[in-house]
Each structure stands twice: as structure tokens, then as C-alpha cells.
Design a protein around this nucleic acid. Sequence first.
DNA 1: CATTATGACGCT
DNA 2: TAGCGTCATA
Length: 676
Amino acid sequence: MSKQIITEADYAKVISHIDLDCFYCQVEQRRLGISDTVPLCVAQWGNLVAVNYAARKYGIMRNESVNEAKLKCPDLISVHVATFAPGKKAGYHLKPNQATHKVCLDVYRRASRQIFSVIQNFTTEYQKGSIDEAYINITQLVNDEIDKQISLGNIEFVYDNQSNEKLPVINWSQGGIATKYRVGSSSDDRDFGWSSLRSYYGAIVTARIRDAIFSQLGFTCSAGVSHSRILSKLGSSLNKPNKQAIILQTDVPDFIGSMKLEKLRFLGGKLGKNIKELLGVETVSDMQRHSLEKLEGFFPLKTARFIYKSCRGIDPDVVPSSTKPKSFSSVKSFGNISKLTTLQQVQDWVAVLSTDIWERLMEQQDIDRYWPKKLTLTMVSSKINVEARNCSKNFPLHFCKNVMESPELLIKSASELVIQLIYNTKNKKSLPSIFPVECLLLHTTQFYSYDINHKNKQITNWVSQSTLKINKSELQNSELTYDRTESAESHIVSSFSTKHYRDNLYGSSKKSPTSKKKPLVTITTKKNSTTLLSPKKNLFSYFDALKKSETHDQAENLSSEPFKTQSDQGKISIKPHTQENPTTPNIIKADPSIYMNQSFADQSIYNLSENNSAISDSIDFIQCTQCPEKNSNIPSKDWASHVDYHLALKLQEKEKHAEKIVNQFSNIFKKQNADI
DNA sequence: CATTATGACGCT
DNA sequence: TAGCGTCATA
């Protein structure tokens, strides 16, 4: 049993784990032109989310508060992440206020894309570990390299009496810095065997990839090379920053044996804790003493195998190669000071989140044409209030012309979701108050491709005939424009200084796409020339509009603002640029309220009445004035300020009706339970 | 250990 | 499938 679960093939792979060094910091350093040697950190509200290595020397760590950090190092440069601000362009604002601003991580996402794009030039077999991490299956690259070196006669062989085979000889010192860091002291400089040879060239290939990332984008990273994701991941953190590590098959037992169990990937959480408690183990080698059969007595089969293999440094699965994001989400949590107390505030913020996601979705269309089918809203509400309430609702997000034209439809969908969440709770007969709202999360998932060349009724309805006739190669070229057209150097520059179209997210996103009335007819092709297409609206027009407008519009914003941020931190004194009054905590002066007041709320986007009566009912609730909950702490004047009383009365009736139904259901449930 | 903003995936 | 939970990283 135990023998067949692990095979030679498990060791035949070569996997790199590449991890950027304090990623957010690096991005900010490059953006601001600050040297790596200057202590710098990236802050989000009061806390540090990234600390560079110069700052770590002062003992500054992630999660520390900015103030604490500055005590340790007065010269520390603290950069706050970019934010969306009411009525302003998204960017590096002076004094971002958690009550009114929203974090914007675009800059890092774009840098991340560039990094993955560099990796993709080596192989498509990589997996995104996170925004700054990649698992790369370099087996093929390594084998190719080995073949090449053999054919060049660069690899020496010796005859091994034990196995009756010719084995390759590895001279580790010949590989230079790339092959320098091996874990374990046992390894000699002279080594034999295919597994070691693969590791050797694995290290060389990995170093090439890292070099490419650095030379093309200026980012340093660390890496681990081994035959599994588990081991490579462990290796990449061994020699940070800007170095790599090799874990040879022969060194694996020693290497992970002494490790605490929770160091292993996926065992750092509850599972790891459970294992430790159930089996009374601490280290990985403790775990290795337990047979698979024993583990299966404690855990589900799959989990048991997973644990068994993990403790031996083996991946249960192959590295999937997927590059496209599978979901987009936008979150806003309101800390302790700015929890939301009115429906209007919730709707305003939901509009912000929607617009954020919409913009990112649109940006993504430039790279991959795919669109989510589902929109999920999650509200987190106070724990002191009734039972902790974290509930979510889904919504079908139809791909259609309108939803691409402006964020309005998305906003509207999301705001309907708010209403559903608040009023259509299914399993509670009396509706607990959702207020105050601590956190809002909007999530899009279930992407499907809408490749123009593929038949899809909705798409073909929308895209004009002439657009459909675009020749295929042109389309494919245009797909690549985002990451491939420009030389790497100009690329990073454009990314940081000009690619910033998300102006006035709060204020004018509504007009930016639609008010540009002139029909845009160009798509950018690979060679940076433009090709004329049908004058009708097509998929790409929107982006061309953006690309054109951003160049002169944005340059001043992203390139100059950051330095103000810097000065804000007390480094250089520059006059405090006229700041929007940090708006009062609870009132969002955000313009998305435009959306809310436009009363597009009373039109139904989708024809839902046929197949989803619950939703269509809820649409009526949108302008509800009165919170039906008894324990609601919503000031009634807040409600009264923007409601229609007539509708409210009607809605109250519906509310009661709905409650009845819920009660009926719960009675049925009770009966059923009684029967059982 | 926390916080906040993300993302992937698994279970039922 | 909807909805929730787990694990991860900056």
C-alpha cells in the first residue's frame, strides 16, 4: 500500500516556486524611484502590509502600525496604497480616510500581470500562487536543456555498478551562483544521478527566469527549486531576498523532517492543528512515522493521502496551468468608526464596489474575453447585533451590451442584491437587522469565455456583423496588446505613469465611457498600429477610448501624487496640496449616490418575473423606506429623507406576506423534522 | 496572533 | 448549484 502511493514519477518533476521580495514595496520603490537600500514600507490605513528588507533591519514587521514602525526607524518611508477617493481620481492620496476612501490595488495587479507575462514566455505551465507567487513546472524546460547539454557533450557519465547504468555526473560548482544554495550539508560538490541533474538544471532554468524578470521589469524575487510545490515553496523562503534554494531528493527527509508540521503548505491552518492534536505530533518526521492506514482512520481518504504525501514532500497533484483569474472581488470594511447605519450608505458603497469591479472586468477584457455569470454580495454585520451575520446572495449576471457599456447595470444588479439580502432572508422568520454593516464584499465568479469566434447567441446579437468579420489573426494580435506589444522597459513606465484610467471612480465613471460619444473604431494591433473597424460599437472601442484619454490625462496624477505621499510622511516638505475636506465619518459624499438617486432602481434590468419571482419581488423593495426589523437602529429620519411613503406602505404589506410564506416554510420544515 | 483586501478551492 | 468554510499572501 505505502509503496504504490509514491512512485518514481513523483520525483521526476522539476518545480520552481518564485516569490517576489516584499512585492508591494518593490512596486512602490520602482514607481517612486527609491533605492532598495532605503527603508520603506507599504501601509493600508494604519497598518503595514509590506516591509522592505532595509526596513526589516530595524525590526519592523508586517502588521505593525505605522507609528510603531516609525519609532523603530524615524527615516522610514511609509507609502499608503493607492485609494479611490470621493470625487477624485484614483491614486496616491494624501490622507486616505478609511471612512471615505477605498483601497485600490491596481498598481500591484498590473505589475503582477507583467511578471506572469515574463514567466509565460518560458512556459505556460505555471500556476499563480498569489499576486506575487508562481509555481512553475519547469520539467520540460529542464529536460530540453539536459538533452541539449548531452548532445553538446557537456555532460559526463560514469558507470554505476549498483544499478548497472550510466549515470550523469554533476559538478555543482560549475553552475555558479544559480546552483550555489543547496539545503543540507551532505551534498558534495560532485554528485551523480538523474534526479540531481534535473535539480541542477532546474536551478539554472529558474535563475534564467528570475533574471528575465529582473532585466525586463526590475523586480527581484526569490525561488525554490525541487520536485514538488511543497518543497519549492519551502525553498523559496530560505534565502530571501533575491536568492534561490535547491532541495535535492536526497536531502528531502532531513530538510522537512525537523520542520514543524504547520510549515507545510495547507497544513498551516486548521487541518495542521487537528493533525497535531489528534496524533500528538509536532514535526514532520513525527508524522512520517504514521502509516497511511493509520491516517485513513483519522481523516477522509483524500485528506489522509494528501497528508501522507505532503510529509514526504510530494505533491498529490500536478501543477495546473491556469493563467486567467477565476474571480474578481472588491471589499470594503468599515473598521470601528465608520460602520454603515443606513441603507443609503450601503447602496452608495455597493456602487463603489461595483464600479471598481466593473472597471477591472473591463480592463480584463483587454486581455481575456471572458465575463462572469455570477455576482455575489456578502454583508458582514455586527457580532453584538443578534447573531453574527455574514450572508451572501447570488445574482445572475447576464452578459449583454448594456453591462459592458457602463458600470450602471452592474451597480444596479448589486443594489438589487442588497435588497435581496436584507429583505429576503430565507431561514429566519423574523428578520434581524443588518445594521450596522461592518463589511461589504462584492464578488464576481463563474467566468466563461465569450470568444467572438465562438457561437454565443447573446454575443452575436450584440456584436455587429461587421465586427464578426474581423479576421482572426487580427483579433488574436489585439489580445496581446496589453502585455506584449511594448518593450519591457517602456512597459513598466507606461504601467506606472500612464495606464491610469480609473479617474473619478466615485464621481464621473458614469460619464467617462458613455459621454465619449464619438464612436471609436480602432483596435490596437500587435505592431502598435491601429486598424479601422466597423464604426459600430465593438468590444474594443471602450479601451481605445481609455488608452487615448489616459495618456495626457493621467500622467500628472500618478506621477506626481506619489511624491506628495512621500512628503506627507515627513520626508520632504511640500505644501499640503488642497485637500478635500476629510468628510465626516458616516456620510459618504461619494458620487455613486448619483446612481442611487437616478432611480434606475425602479426599472428592472432583467426580465426576472418568469423564472425568479423572489428576485422580481425584491426589486420592488429597492426604495423601501422603513426597515422592517424591530431592533433596527436606523434613525428614521435617515430613512425618511429619501423615500417614498406610498411605496413603503405597499411594501410593508408585501413584507408581511413574505413573512407569512417564510413561516409556512418553517412550519413545513418542522413537520418534516417531526416526521423524521 | 492582529487588519484589510484580495484570490483559489473544497465540502455539502 | 448555492452557500459557506479553509488556506493563502501583501
